[in-house]
């Protein structure tokens, strides 16, 4: 009799466990590769590039705006009397390659860049622990010949003098939902510099991070350290910026305090004149508005629907 009860117990438990996870009958979840997303709210931390790209087919219209120095005092309404602006368009050619160009009021500069995500941090199905993005940028000032910083009477004004380049390797990791840190060693090359003490190539390292304060607000900070002994001492300061990202659906608003005036690499890395801790701080904002101009999955979706229609 006890054996009978035992047997009943056995069959009862087996059928129970079979009920409990029916879905396990399908076998293990397939480990599809998934890359980490949303390490930053947008493609720039503040001035510099973040780990993120615009997605394939997405156009990002960016407006960057920096007021004058807060240290200008009440005469300048703490900087609100002045403004430096950059307007730019970024576009994702694929999920890994993006291009962009912009026009800054700072030295009337045009700039363009290509950004390629060489390595992508992996969430699932692979092992890559960090993301590596390569950024190559170039800029050209369109100031009149007698307004360029290196102007000297009688010197021939070559187009090539107006060019500068920047190369960065942005490497970083989204450690958890709220914290992302990145390092971006790079070099800025200027075809022509103002004094013979200035080097044409300036090695620099950017460091940046973000902390998510809520789902839609993050605290960002970045610092670009220009390696010492590469030019006249104390001519320029390192770029420091602290700000917030506020995301509202299709827009990201970035509000920041920074000692840098320009918003492209040569300007903020090598030509920052403000001393952050002496009040030479610009209040500023970036507005990013994205438009989906091409839907890469539309074709596949359409095919699927056609197939479904055929099958009834």
């Amino acid at each position: 009799m006890t054996r009978l009860v035992f047997a009943f117990a056995v069959c009862a438990t087996t059928s129970l466990s079979a009920q409990d996870d029916l879905l396990s009958l399908l076998g293990k979840d397939s480990a599809e590769v998934a890359y980490t997303t949303a390490s930053f709210k947008t493609t720039r931390v503040i001035n510099g590039h973040s780990l993120e790209n615009t997605a394939h087919g997405v156009l990002d219209f960016r407006i960057g705006h920096r007021m004058g120095f807060v240290s200008g005092g009440i005469d300048q309404l703490f900087g609100l009397d002045q403004a430096t602006i950059r307007l730019g368009f970024d576009y994702g050619i694929t999920d890994r390659i993006m291009v962009g160009f912009g026009r800054s009021s700072y030295q009337k500069t045009l700039d363009g860049f290509v950004k390629y995500k060489l390595l992508r941090q992996c969430d699932q199905g692979c092992t890559m622990p960090f993301t590596l993005a390569l950024v190559a940028a170039t800029s050209v000032t369109t100031l009149k010949a007698d307004q360029v910083p290196w102007f000297a009477a009688g010197r021939q004004d070559y187009f090539s003098h107006r060019l500068s380049y920047s190369f960065q390797a942005v490497v970083g990791r989204k450690f958890n939902e709220s914290l992302t840190l990145q390092l971006s060693p790079g070099v800025v090359h200027r075809n022509l510099v103002v004094t013979d003490q200035d080097r044409n190539d300036l090695l620099n390292v950017g460091m940046a991070g973000r902390l998510k304060l809520s789902k839609r607000v993050t605290l960002n900070a970045e610092y670009f350290y220009v390696l010492p002994d590469q030019g006249p001492p104390d001519a320029f300061h390192n770029s420091l910026a602290v700000g917030f990202d506020i995301e509202t659906g299709g827009h990201v608003f970035q509000l920041q305090f920074t000692n840098s005036t320009g918003m492209f690499e040569r300007a903020y890395i090598t030509e920052t004149t403000g001393d952050f801790f002496q009040g030479d701080i610009h209040f500023g904002f970036n507005i990013s508005r994205v438009f989906t101009v091409y839907d890469p999955k539309a074709k596949a979706r359409r095919k699927q629907e056609e197939r479904k229609a055929r099958m009834g």
Partner: peptide, 22 residues
Amino acid sequence: KAFEFEKALMQEHFNENYMESS
């Protein structure tokens, strides 16, 4: 995360802001 949207940003916000899929 397997829900696909027409707009990449919608998908990101769906996962990050609403469903908290991680």
